[in-house]
């Protein structure tokens, strides 16, 4: 192979003993992953990686951020993404790269020149290993933010409890973003279902501080401005004590200890409206 590589001996060795190195590398990584990935798949992945590293080395430059290693980098990023999705640890992912050093060590370090080239190559592999960790973390962050978004969608259902009565069972901590979503959904449902009563149930809200109370008040005031009556229910004894201790004023907003009480009250008012209607017709 014609080469202008800075590590001619290394390239030569890697080319000559490709199959031996590759199978040993695959075995080492396979042991690390304890059979959670099939050897055939692993062999294919590492084979591609091996080829791309070899090609990059032949190109000469040893900079892992250089153009030569672009293909290697994209392969590694892809590999890290898959590992992150499959639930492997960052250590296991990075060791996929680092274990190539172990494989090469006995062969290359037998003479001085080989050892020197081995050290340079090891430094390069360290860089590439770090790249996998970075890609791994990035993928994990993407997964987390996607899940947070899904959770936001899932955790704010608005249910119709009765004709003219809708309920929002809140579960989990309230922050501004969630309150915004809850508020939007609740108000839109009020309009769509022509409901005059809304019940916000906070049984599933672990703590109520001044900020959460502020968010709740905003929602109630907005509903009221649209012409609907909004009740807060599910206030646990502990929370009632906190509310009073913090000096939070709920003003004239109706609150109830349990959802059933709030629903009974709402149904009574809806029924009153209905009788008015009949009288109006007569």
């Amino acid at each position: 192979m014609t080469t202008d590589s800075k590590l001619p001996l290394l390239v030569e060795t890697l080319t000559a003993q490709r199959d031996a190195f590759l199978s040993q590398w695959t075995r080492t990584v396979g042991e690390d992953l304890q059979g959670r990935l099939s050897l055939a798949e692993l062999g294919r992945e590492l084979g591609e990686l091996y080829e791309s590293i070899l090609r990059a080395l032949t190109g000469g430059d040893l900079d892992s951020h250089g153009e030569n290693f672009a293909e290697t980098r994209s392969l590694l990023i892809e590999l890290s993404r898959n590992r992150a999705r499959q639930g492997f640890t960052p250590t296991e992912t990075a060791r996929s790269v680092f274990s190539l050093k172990e494989v090469l060590e006995p062969t290359l370090t037998s003479d001085e020149k080989g050892a020197q080239q081995y050290l340079q190559f090891a430094r390069l592999l360290d860089d590439l290993g770090l790249l996998t960790t970075e890609a791994y973390v990035r993928t994990r962050e993407e997964i987390i933010s996607a899940q947070a978004e899904q959770l936001l969608e899932l955790s704010t259902p608005v249910v119709k409890l009765w004709d003219g009565v809708v309920g929002v069972p809140l579960v989990g901590t309230l922050d501004s973003a969630r309150t915004q979503v809850v508020m939007e959904k609740l108000l839109q449902t009020l309009v769509d279902s022509d409901s005059t009563h809304a019940i916000i149930d906070i049984t599933g809200v672990p703590t109520v501080d001044t900020q959460v109370a502020q968010h709740l008040l905003k929602t109630v005031v907005a509903a009221r401005m649209m012409g609907a009556q909004c009740t807060i229910s599910g206030i646990r004894p502990q929370i009632a004590q906190t509310i009073v201790a913090l000096g939070i004023e709920f003003g004239d907003i109706p609150t109830n200890a349990s959802l059933s009480d709030a629903l009974r009250q709402a149904l009574k008012e809806v029924a009153e409206d209905a009788t008015e209607e009949i009288r109006g017709l007569l």
């Binding site: 915004q180 508020m183 939007e184 108000l187 839109q188 009020l190 309009v191 022509d194 409901s195 005059t196 905003k218 005031v221 907005a222 509903a223 009221r224 401005m225 649209m226 012409g227 609907a228 409206d273 008015e276 209607e277 109006g280």
Partner: peptide, 30 residues
């Protein structure tokens, strides 16, 4: 009043105290 409008007014700190509201014209008449 539209939901978006209600939310804007709340953010502005206006609560339309003393103004009665209804969801739609029909309920308003009632």
């Amino acid at each position: 009043m539209r939901p978006a409008v209600a939310m804007t007014l709340v953010e502005l700190g206006l609560s339309l105290q003393g103004v009665r509201t209804a969801l739609n014209l029909e309920r308003g008449l009632k």
